[in-house]
Structures are given as structure tokens and as C-alpha cells.
Design a protein around this nucleic acid. Structure first.
Length: 213
DNA sequence: CTGACGATTCACT
DNA sequence: GTGAATCGTCAGC
């Protein structure tokens, strides 16, 4: 059981990092309430050359400047006026790579997550989809720019390994506006896991070959 | 200052 | 499958 450190987040290949984050444990600890879940779905956003990225073309605004911070920083933003989406900034300073965490399998603090989301009981909607992940873990836009090397939001490797053949690569969700980049296989998920959002091919692995970029 | 809109979710048909 | 909710952000005037 060990917290991911700077070396992990400094990795230069954001697509590989998105894949490597599958199976890790995302933890938040606010006001003494610890909540966590195993990451089962991620998406990579490949910096200035990725039309689906907020930093495409070097775009650097008050909101997106967080993406230019060093790897290991939280990038959280409000989407559709309702949902806070949590991303892990990767690579080094001034290279705006990020990984969106889209789904978790709940582990610790499920009662607290139910309280935050107003759900009556645990089901697959608690941490399914990026908006729900943030809501359940208590992550808000005000946490953007927070270091993941600190004590409030961080990611653990607990030694649990997802069978590699069950980690599927697919196109990202909701990025049709990104033209040809919408087809890139930058989304990763655990095949058949009930917390995975959107399309979830249970077993037909061959259709979406995993490529180590 | 203004208007269009989004890396979504949920209720409803 | 369709549509509403809801507001900070950002490009453009």
C-alpha cells in the first residue's frame, strides 16, 4: 500500500499513464472523512496536439492554466453547470497532459458517499461516470490545482492487479467535436465492471486492441 | 458586457 | 431515444 509519487505523475506518456491508473485507488480525506474507490475507467487528454483537450493548440486560460502545472496536480472543472470533473495532471510543468477519472468501484466510506450523493443505497450509479465520481468523493472545482502528493486527494497502489487482458481501450466519451481525434483509443476501462460508464464491451477484447503507445 | 455552450446526468417517453 | 437542468468560462463585440 503506497501513495503514488512524483515519479509516477511525471511520466511523459499520458495514454500509458491513463492505462496504468486503472486498478489504482483514488482517495479523498476531507474533515476526517476518508472515502476511496478503485479506478475502473479513465481517459487520456494528450495536451496541445489533442483536439479533445482543453489545452489544444496551447490554449491557456484562467481555468486551464492548472493543466500546465507539474504532474501530480488535480484539475477539476465544472461541466454543464452541474458536474465537477476530476482530472490528474501528468508530465512536467508546461506540458498540459491530463487523465480524466470516469469511474470508480467504491471501497472506503461508502456511507459518506451515499450521504454526499443523496442516494439511499449502494448501487452501480454511485461512482459511475465522472460527475458521480466527484460528487461521491466530495471533489469540487475549488480543489483544482491541489497537489495529489498532499493529504486530501491522492492515489494509492494497494498491490491489487487488474488482469491486463481485461483492460480495454476504446474511443473517448462525448468528444465527437474533436474531429479525427475523437477516434483515438484514449479511454481505458475494466471489461464488464458494473461501474464503468457508457459502452462497456464485456469480453470481446479483440475488437479494441490495447496498444502501448 | 453578452451569448453560446460543455470531457454529464437523470427523468421520462 | 429525447430533452431539461444550470452556470462558469471564454470568444467576440
Amino acid at each position: 500500500m503506497e501513495k503514488l509519487g512524483q515519479d509516477f505523475y511525471s511520466g511523459k506518456n499520458v495514454v500509458l499513464l491513463a492505462k496504468q491508473l486503472i486498478g489504482k485507488v483514488l482517495v479523498t480525506d476531507f474533515n476526517g472523512f476518508r472515502t476511496s474507490g478503485r479506478i475502473v475507467e479513465t481517459e487520456a487528454y494528450n495536451g496541445v496536439i489533442d483536439k479533445a483537450s482543453h489545452a489544444y493548440g496551447g490554449r491557456n486560460t484562467n481555468r486551464t492554466k492548472v493543466m500546465y502545472m507539474p504532474g501530480g496536480t488535480a484539475y477539476v472543472y465544472l461541466c454543464y453547470g452541474i458536474h465537477h470533473l476530476f482530472n490528474v495532471v501528468t508530465n512536467q510543468e508546461n506540458i498540459p497532459h491530463a487523465v480524466l477519472v470516469r469511474a470508480l468501484e467504491p471501497l472506503d466510506g461508502i456511507e459518506k458517499m451515499l450521504e454526499r450523493t443523496g442516494k439511499p443505497k449502494l448501487d452501480n450509479s454511485l461512482t459511475r461516470g465522472p460527475g458521480n465520481v466527484s460528487k461521491a468523493l466530495g471533489i469540487a472545482a475549488s480543489h483544482s490545482s491541489l497537489s495529489l502528493l498532499g493529504d486530501h486527494i491522492y492515489i494509492m497502489d494497494d498491490g491489487f492487479t487488474i488482469e491486463p487482458s481485461t483492460v480495454i481501450a476504446s474511443p473517448r466519451i462525448g468528444v465527437d467535436y474533436a474531429a479525427e481525434d475523437a477516434a483515438l483509443l484514449y479511454r481505458f476501462y475494466v471489461a464488464g465492471n458494473k461501474y464503468v460508464s457508457g459502452k462497456n464491451k464485456p469480453l470481446n477484447v479483440s475488437q479494441y486492441p490495447i496498444r502501448n503507445p
